[in-house]
């Protein structure tokens, strides 16, 4: 059974709120993830998503994250990704042929 644990923390990171993703961030749970992201992004602070504990990430999740980044960008907010060098995130990028683009990301990607 695929399981996703979302642990939003109001002050989880030095930058502000943090969404800790644990387990499988895949199509089956994608609506929950979207909901959580929407709520956190509505707050007026930079958001960090931490994938370090994710065991599996799929294309749907990747799309969602990209969309969230686009929204944040347009709203002049910061969205940081963490844990993207872990296996789960790396393999979804490899499989799908996407790259984390833009300078913004390269410095955001921190283990």
């Amino acid at each position: 059974m695929t399981q996703l644990i979302l642990s939003p923390q109001e002050q989880g990171s030095p930058n502000g709120p943090l969404l800790q993703i644990e387990g499988e961030a895949t199509l089956e749970n994608i609506s929950d993830l979207k909901q959580a992201l929407l709520e956190l992004l509505a707050q007026n602070a930079p958001l960090t998503i931490d994938f370090a504990k994710a065991t599996r990430i799929d294309l749907a999740c990747l799309q969602l994250v990209c969309s969230a980044r686009r929204s944040a960008e347009n709203a002049q907010k910061k969205l940081y990704l963490r844990g993207t060098s872990q296996d789960a995130f790396r393999s979804v990028l490899e499989d799908t042929g996407f790259q984390l683009s833009g300078e913004e990301l390269s410095h955001l990607v921190s283990a």
Binding site: L27, I30, S31, L33, K34, L37, L38, L41, L59, A60, Q63, L64, C66, S67, A68, R70, S71, N74, T96, G97, F98
Partner: peptide, 23 residues
Amino acid sequence: IRGVMDDLPELEGLNPELCYSSW
């Protein structure tokens, strides 16, 4: 393989169960 997600909508308008990617 290079993925493209050009017409990805913003989060509010996104149906996360649809595929917006092409390759």
